[in-house]
Amino acid sequence: MSMTSIGRLLSRGHYSAPPPLDLSHNIVLYLEGISVSFDGFKALNNLNLYIEAGELRCIIGPNGAGKTTMMDVITGKTRPDTGSAWFGQTIDLLALSEPEIAQAGIGRKFQKPTVFPNHTVFENLELALAGERSVWKVLFAKLSPSQIARIDQVLETVGLKDHRSTQAGSLSHGQKQWLEIGMMLVQEPKLMLVDEPVAGMTPQETEKTAELLVSLAGERSVVVVEHDMDFVRSIARTVTVLHEGSVLAEGSIDKVQNDPKVVEVYLGE
């Protein structure tokens, strides 16, 4: 692993602590009137989305519906042309940089796992846990008992306890996905954005991933973007359907599946 790679991972540690997350209204994420255009194409069009504290939300929609752009806005990668984005009652996401948003408590897992293949599972989690420690302290300093306990707890949660000394590069595709989820968990985010977590997984891995994501909701909010409708049915509590950058439908999986507009633009494909 290069120093540059580690430095990027730890860059969030250079910022002062964010204000405390205010969940007094039970809403962890507010997106209101969000519009984003790229060369005349409207990727998001007056998008309104509200995620409750502790909920598991599934986001579906055809290609080009705006799912990735929505996550880019939440994490600070893309700035909207109009609209507002709030994390709880007091944290204005549009006023923060990407590292500051990560430090505030929003984690994102991309579709392709981005683990450090030449380091062990434990070391990957140690690097993710690093926080404000310098690169050299991460590599050479001893962890505190509480930090070791935190990593062990996450290893148990993601099902990799028996692989703590395994090089990440030798894990199966599904195990790498779970490791990356674990790398988010050690940072104790309040909102997790998970992009197509079961793409390329075996049926057994898919089932285990469903159980893992369901178990994570409650202490934190989990937003899952996914194309696999069977998987969505297995975990869905509330489903939001995006189409042409806006919310087309929202509700239970049964309500969404039976919505004629959804059948026409997505499920009927």
Rank of each mutant, 00 (worst) to 15 (best):
P20K: 10
R133A: 11
P145I: 04
L155A: 09
D195R: 03
G200H: 02
M229Q: 06
G131N: 06
L44W: 04
N46S: 14
S11G: 10
V73W: 07
C58P: 03
R164L: 13
L139F: 08
A249N: 02
F38D: 00
E219C: 09
V186G: 00
F122I: 07
W136T: 15
E207F: 09
S252M: 03
G131W: 08
A85N: 08
D259N: 10
G174R: 05
Y50T: 13
L129G: 04
T114N: 15
K137E: 15
D152H: 12
E207H: 12
A17R: 15
G218M: 05
F110W: 12
E123K: 12
Q153D: 08
N118E: 15
W86R: 14
D259C: 01
G33R: 05
D254I: 09
E123W: 11
A217R: 11
I253R: 09
V224R: 02
I235F: 03
N45D: 13
Y15R: 04
N63T: 05
E196K: 01
I60N: 01
H14L: 14
K77S: 13
E52A: 14
M183K: 12
S170Q: 13
L44Y: 04
V265R: 00
V225N: 01
G131D: 06
T114K: 14
L44S: 04
F110N: 05
L213E: 00
E132I: 11
L155T: 09
V265K: 00
A95P: 12
K190M: 12
L93F: 05
I51P: 03
T206W: 04
Q175V: 10
D162K: 13
A43Y: 00
L191Y: 01
E205L: 06
A236V: 01
N118R: 12
D22R: 08
L212I: 00
D228K: 05
G40R: 01
Q257I: 10
Q153A: 09
Y15Q: 09
E196A: 03
E123T: 13
S246I: 03
E156L: 11
